Amino acid sequence: MDLQQIKYFLAVVDNGTFLAASKQVHVTQPTLSAGIRKLEQSLGVTLFNRGSRSATLTAEGEQFLKPARQSYNQLVLVRSKLRKQPEKIVIGVLSNIHMDHVARIISSYRSIHPHILIELVVDADAALSRMLAEKKVDLIIVNSDTQADNFQPIIRESLCIVVPGGHPWANERLIELKSLDGERFIERIRCGFWEPVNQQFQQQQIQPLTVMQAESDEFVLSLVAANLGVSIITDRTTPYDVRFIEIKDLSIDRSIGVCMPNTDVLPHVEAFYRAVLDKRD
């Protein structure tokens, strides 16, 4: 039994088929199958029920899975420490994406690959797209307005009206856009959502009383919490005392997702990509 054989075993478990597993670890299917057979021979048991479309764990395979994953992660961690060069994924993150979304995307991978070092690089979309093309980052987390190719949506975002916790609307579940007419309003500028929102204001002849403008979601939320006005922003978890209210007559959606190159992808980066796609909304 060796580390590579355990890696093959875990790849089959995580991907469900020998073919998909071989692609993840970048070997041919016969090579992976031979590695699994050697592992089974060394253990003296059959680990997988081999079907035409999938590979499922036998009772012995189920028993082997937890210690195999723990041992693999520990051995990779030790190897990384000895080499002083841990396996790493460099992820570019769009500057205006809320970190709740980033944490959610990463956590689905982190729970089963704790030994991988993850570095986050925050920048604008154009810069991230360029870094991805130049292979300065392994993948990027951006929204559906991105210039980069191969975008795969993970999390759907919807716009809400955000009000202070003590606002008369705070307990409302739904509200019409026209309610903002004449209301003190904090405008989120330089945001992909703002142009279609402004078009809706013009079409419905709605004129909020814009009292402040801010370039970041965090600034907007802090200003709303201070009772300086209301705003339109995507729903999220926040420490600020604000309430998010669904807009009855405004349907502008956007997705948060990932982009990855088509070629020369490292196995642990490919594993990250597959893990987050499996957890998409």
Score class of each variant (00 low, 15 high):
Ser129Leu: 01
Asn96Asp: 15
Pro239Cys: 00
Leu43Phe: 05
Gln202Arg: 13
Lys23Tyr: 12
Asp149Glu: 14
Val162Gly: 08
Leu75Lys: 08
Leu43Arg: 13
Trp194Cys: 01
Ser179Cys: 09
Phe64Asp: 00
Pro153Ser: 06
Val121Lys: 10
Ile206Ala: 02
Leu221Lys: 08
Pro153Phe: 06
Gln63Cys: 05
Asn96Pro: 08
Gln202Leu: 14
Val78Arg: 12
Pro114Gln: 00
Val269Asn: 09
Arg188Trp: 11
Val122Ile: 15
Met99Ile: 10
Val258Cys: 11
Arg254Glu: 11
Val45Glu: 11
Asp278Leu: 11
Asn143Arg: 09
Val142Arg: 07
Leu266Gln: 15
Ile245Ser: 07
Val137Phe: 04
Ile175Val: 10
Leu75Cys: 04
Phe18Asp: 00
Arg50Ile: 13
Ile89Phe: 04
Leu57Asn: 05
Ile189Tyr: 07
Asn150Ile: 02
Ile97Gln: 05
Gln147His: 09
Leu277Ser: 06
Ala68Asp: 01
Arg83Ile: 00
Glu40Trp: 03
Leu57Tyr: 04
Gly51Gln: 11
Ala11Tyr: 02
Gln147Arg: 07
Pro30Phe: 04
Phe193Trp: 10
Pro267Asp: 01
Cys191Glu: 10
Ser222Asp: 10
Gln147Tyr: 09
Leu228Gln: 15
Phe18Asn: 04
Met131Pro: 04
Leu32Asn: 03
Glu218Trp: 09
Leu120Gly: 03
Ser111Phe: 01
Val78Thr: 12
Arg79Gly: 15
Phe185Arg: 03
Glu176Arg: 13
Val78Leu: 14
Ala133Gly: 05
Glu40Asn: 03
Ser216Gln: 05
Asn15Phe: 10
Glu60Ala: 15
Ile245Ala: 06
Gln85Phe: 09
Ala68Gly: 01
Asn198Gln: 13
Gly192Asp: 03
Asn96Ala: 11
Pro114Thr: 00
Arg236Val: 09
Leu75Val: 09
Asp145Cys: 09
Arg156Leu: 12
Asn96Tyr: 10
Ala133Ser: 12
Ala34Val: 06
Gln199Trp: 00
His167Phe: 05
Leu250Ile: 07
